[in-house]
C-alpha cells in the first residue's frame, strides 16, 4: 500500500503484474481518517466488519476488491 507520483508510475511499477486498486490521495486521506481516527482514544473499541465495510462503501470503495471477508 504505497503512494505513487501518478498512475503512470503505478503502471510502470506493476510491470505487467495484475493491478490491485488505485485511488486518489484525497480519497486515501479520507479513508485514513475514517478508519483510524479513534485508535488512540481511551474509549476505543474494536470496529466491527460492518462498521469497516460502511467506511469503504461511504467513500465509494465498492466492488469485489473492497469487500471485507
Amino acid at each position: 500500500m504505497n503512494l505513487f507520483r501518478s498512475e503512470e508510475h503505478v503502471e510502470r511499477w506493476l510491470a505487467g503484474r495484475e493491478p490491485g486498486a488505485t485511488i486518489p490521495v484525497a480519497t486515501l486521506a479520507a479513508l485514513g481518517a475514517a478508519w483510524w481516527h479513534d485508535r488512540v482514544d481511551p474509549g476505543w473499541r474494536p470496529h466491527t466488519r460492518a462498521q469497516n465495510q460502511a467506511i469503504l462503501d461511504g467513500l465509494g470503495l465498492t466492488g469485489p476488491f473492497w469487500r471485507l471477508p
Binding site: 500500500m1 503505478v10 490491485g20 486498486a21 485511488i23 473492497w66
Partner: peptide, 11 residues
C-alpha cells in the same frame, strides 16, 4: 492532490 495510492491485495 496529484499523488495516487495503490493497493495490490484485495480487502
Amino acid at each position: 492532490e496529484s499523488l495516487v495510492f495503490h493497493s495490490l491485495v484485495p480487502a
